[in-house]
């Protein structure tokens, strides 16, 4: 092995860790370069959504299930933290952990019977859960504040360092998202993750190979609910205000669109999907009245022509082109 080969091999061997490190470094310096609060607000929102989408992608892309109700867990996390810190005066960090644990319990109770369902039935069941949670948030006026929402949620703090402006939120939310990213990347390459991928491909075959199908599904469902709940808690503390409209079924559909556009089962794609769907309305703002139309059109065109999702689809396309190009070079060399 020459020195060059060794370096290349080292890079290849540690490609995941190195990419994450590079990405973390990028995130670290980003607010130093870009200090416009509006832009930072958008990237923070991307981080929050990415946290939900990472979990959801494990559930949809890896375990091959469907959930049209993850905004419910997102909302439970947000309202849980809001109520725990204002009505019960709990300190924010323990409240966040407590709420995440409670949401995990809810996901377990819902998941155990619901994950016996398949396909469209599961989609309807999760959608139904979301509608139930949304209606309760709207109607349980004395506790949730109804349609007008819930304000006065205290910000998170580490000692004297209070996370109360966009630049500081940036580090808070992105550290959560990066940890979740790292955890997901490791999970999918562990035995459990391979089991999940087998489950997505064929449930019966996976069961034959010794994957405990039922418990694997419930576990990944609970994990994704916890991710969503953490994102919800962060959302509540960052904005200091929550209202039911952030947690309706359309938000759930948006989350799944993020998963699908990023690529089913592509962890990095989750970040990309979250970014694309969050930024798209900003970019097409100029079209004003045609905004909805163009939003739908872009979605349909991507799904129609790159059904593997943008990242995976474009990567496949590139690989294909490269292989064809190499082939052409080889045949030209052979001719010469």
């Amino acid at each position: 092995m020459t020195a060059k080969d060794k370096i290349l091999y080292f890079l290849y061997l540690h490609r995941t860790g190195l990419t994450v490190t590079a990405f973390a470094a990028f995130v670290l310096v980003f607010p130093l370069v870009e200090d416009n609060p509006y832009t930072l607000g958008l990237t923070n929102l991307i981080a929050l959504y990415a946290l939900v989408v990472l979990g959801l992608n494990l559930f949809i892309g890896y375990a091959g299930q469907i959930s049209l109700g993850h905004a419910a867990f997102f909302g439970l996390g947000a309202y849980g933290s809001a109520i725990a810190t204002t009505a019960f005066n709990l300190p924010p960090w323990p409240a966040m952990a407590l709420v995440a644990a409670l949401v995990a319990l809810v996901a377990l109770v819902v998941g155990l019977p619901a994950l016996r369902l398949h396909g469209h039935y599961l989609a309807m069941a999760t959608l139904g859960c979301n509608i139930v949670v949304y209606t309760v948030l709207v109607q349980w006026h004395p506790v949730t504040g109804g349609h007008s929402g819930f304000s006065g949620i205290p910000p998170l703090a580490l000692g004297d360092f209070v996370f109360d402006e966009e630049g500081r939120f940036h580090y808070l939310v992105w550290s959560f998202t990066l940890l979740a990213l790292l955890a997901s990347l490791n999970l999918v390459r562990s035995g459990v993750g391979r089991g999940l991928a087998a489950l997505a491909a064929d449930e019966t075959a996976a069961a034959c190979l010794g994957v405990d199908v039922r418990s694997a599904k419930v576990k990944v469902f609970v994990l994704s609910a916890v991710f969503a709940s953490l994102a919800g808690s962060l959302f509540a503390h960052c904005y200091g205000f929550v209202s039911p409209d952030s947690f309706g079924i359309f938000r759930s559909v948006d989350f799944v669109i993020m998963v699908v556009l990023g690529g089913l089962g592509s962890i990095w794609g989750s970040l990309f999907g979250a970014a694309l769907v969050t930024l798209l309305p900003e970019w097409i703002e100029v079209f004003d009245t045609y905004k909805d139309l163009i939003h739908g059109l872009i979605l349909v065109l991507i799904l129609m022509f790159l059904p593997q999702g943008l990242i995976t689809g474009l990567a496949d396309l590139l690989k294909q082109r490269l292989a064809l190009y190499r082939r052409r070079l080889e045949s030209r060399d052979a001719d010469a």
């Binding site: 949809i60 009245t289 909805d292 139309l293 939003h295 739908g296 059109l297 799904l303 129609m304």
Partner: peptide
């Protein structure tokens, strides 16, 4: 014209179509 037979992709195409139809109707 969709290039996929994955039901999940097709379902999300119908969601996209639904957004387009709503956009058209509101226009």
């Amino acid at each position: 014209p969709a290039r996929s037979d994955n039901p999940l992709i097709l379902i999300f195409i119908t969601i996209g179509l639904s957004i387009i139809l709503r956009g058209l109707m509101s226009l």
